[in-house]
């Protein structure tokens, strides 16, 4: 069996995500042919089995938007990798106005611009993540795969959403998964419930997909969304 071709491409993130991928490069080359700017030229006009896009999309940069669309068109599976690409992450706070390009105002998860197959939060995800994910995609099913697909459809995920949707909504069971999933320690257990320290949250989204309640809600919602969109297609709405 020939190895799949995998493109790793950064759209203007901090480079932390592609570098975390570089760290498993010695393993990755055993399961895929890797194309990345870290090692040489990449060609966006050819086709790839997987495209792993890191970094957020700047809605005000037509060049980047075009690049992203091209990548979508030329790849079989598109993976939004890391918090910036999948849920927006720290860069959601951007407000533009900075020289020399004050017009770069709005940043978004890439699923705002193109259809994304799987979205993986993490700032940055641990290197092993990509290997596991590729293995899992090959097998084609399972709860976590559903979850990462759901993140692509509902990218509004942060510690604030965890509070709103789960904790303040009375659905939290106090398992502590979220507390152990925050890279900045923005969550702490108070009386068996997590509480958010707002100034520490960088909106990486990790806590939300680690929460058993939130992940379940996400998967269910994405099913409804998909159903609704296929219905509207049938009825021509």
């Amino acid at each position: 069996m020939s190895k799949p071709a995998i493109l790793i491409y950064d759209l203007g993130g901090c480079e932390g995500c592609p570098l975390s991928i570089m760290r498993v490069y010695p393993q990755l080359i055993n399961i895929a042919n890797v194309y990345t700017k870290c090692l040489g030229k990449v060609d966006l006009d050819r086709e790839y089995d997987y495209a792993v896009v890191t970094g957020p999309i700047c809605i005000n940069s037509p060049e980047h938007v075009e690049e992203l669309k091209k990548i979508r068109k030329n790849s079989r599976v598109l993976i939004a990798y890391g918090s910036c690409a999948s849920v927006g992450g720290i860069i959601l706070y951007a407000r533009g106005g900075q020289e020399p390009r004050p017009e770069h105002r709005v940043y978004a998860p890439i699923s705002r611009v193109v259809r994304v197959d799987y979205a993986i939060p993490g700032c940055p995800p641990a290197p092993q993540m990509l290997i596991s994910l590729l293995n899992c995609i090959r097998r084609g099913k399972g709860y976590f795969l559903d979850l990462f697909r759901a993140v692509a459809l509902n990218p509004k995920l942060s510690g604030f959403d965890l509070m709103d949707e789960v904790v303040l909504n009375g659905l939290c069971v106090g398992c502590g998964a979220c507390v152990l999933s925050c890279p900045t320690n923005a969550l702490q257990m108070i009386d068996n419930r997590p509480d958010l320290i707002p100034e520490k949250c960088i909106r990486c989204g990790t806590c939300t997909v680690r929460c058993p309640r939130f992940s379940q809600i996400l998967i269910q919602r994405s099913r409804l969304l998909q159903k609704a969109s296929s219905l509207s297609r049938i009825s021509g709405v």
């Binding site: 203007g12 993130g13 901090c14 480079e15 932390g16 995500c17 592609p18 570098l19 975390s20 957020p56 700047c58 005000n60 940069s61 980047h64 992450g89 720290i90 860069i91 706070y93 951007a94 407000r95 533009g96 106005g97 900075q98 020289e99 020399p100 390009r101 004050p102 770069h104 940043y107 700032c123 940055p124 900045t184 100034e199 520490k200 960088i202």
Partner: peptide
């Protein structure tokens, strides 16, 4: 693209800013 961290951190608590500016660069 210019992400504009200098503007991004205005008005924020210092604790946030340290975590934010580290994310300027993954290197």
């Amino acid at each position: 693209p210019v992400r504009g961290f200098e503007k991004l951190v205005r008005g924020k608590n210092p604790v946030f800013v340290v975590n934010a500016v580290m994310r300027i660069c993954g290197i």
